[in-house]
Simulated scan of single mutants.
Amino acid sequence: MAKETGRKLIAQNKKARHDYHIDDTFEAGMVLTGTEVKSLRQGRASLVDGFADVDNGEIWLHGVHIPEYTQGTWTNHTARRRRKLLLHREEIDKIADRVHQKGLTVVPLALYFKDGRAKVEIGLARGKKSWDKRHALAERTAEREKQEAIGRRLKGIPD
């Protein structure tokens, strides 16, 4: 069997980038059971309610939904159990310091396979206010309208 190469995206948390300012991102491995990996290989996961927490010098991922494997037996996993993240000690210390001092939170941004290994991209995030969200939406709308106007002008269509 050939070894997998590259990055295969499983799930992405688009809402996190809308609800939070992402200050820094980290790539972490995950401690998974066999049925969790099989379920992920089918492309089934949800990061919507997920967050990470530092506990006794370890980072744990909570609320990520990996559904039970359909062909699993009594050895199947629980869908929303907490999962340990694998990071270097310096990265864990950096995340723990910033979470405790600055009041940031850790949210999962993407879940993917990289060279056959399950990885999660986590981000240190600050919550956005409602006016920040409206401002970001207005910027995206203005940029889209600008690109459409440029496209019309290049095609020779009058405004």
Rank of each mutant, 00 (worst) to 15 (best):
I66D: 00
Q12N: 14
R140P: 02
T35C: 06
D115A: 15
K102L: 00
A149R: 14
N13I: 10
H77Y: 07
G50F: 00
T33M: 01
P158A: 13
K15G: 12
Q71W: 10
E148L: 14
T75L: 11
A52P: 01
E36F: 02
G72T: 06
A16H: 08
G151T: 10
T105N: 02
G127P: 11
R83C: 04
R98A: 09
V106A: 00
A118Y: 05
I59F: 02
F113I: 08
R152L: 14
Q42G: 13
L124F: 03
K84G: 04
H65P: 03
E4I: 11
R44W: 07
D115E: 15
F51W: 06
G103P: 08
G151R: 12
L47N: 05
L111W: 11
Y20T: 07
P158Q: 12
W74E: 13
R126W: 04
I59Q: 02
V31F: 02
E148Y: 15
D159M: 12
L61V: 00
D55L: 07
P108W: 04
S46E: 07
T5M: 15
R117L: 13
Y20L: 08
L61E: 01
R41T: 10
T70Y: 02
A16I: 08
I122E: 05
K129E: 14
A136D: 15
D49A: 15
I95M: 03
A96K: 05
V48T: 15
T33P: 00
M1Q: 13
V120R: 01
R17M: 13
L40R: 01
A136F: 12
L9N: 11
E36G: 07
K114E: 15
L154S: 13
T73H: 03
E27M: 11
A79R: 10
L124V: 09
V64A: 04
K119E: 08
A125H: 12
R44K: 15
H18L: 14
I150H: 13
L137Y: 11
V48R: 15
R89E: 14
A11Q: 08
W131R: 05
H62D: 03
A118P: 01
F113H: 09
V106D: 00
K155E: 11
R7C: 14
A136R: 09
V64L: 04
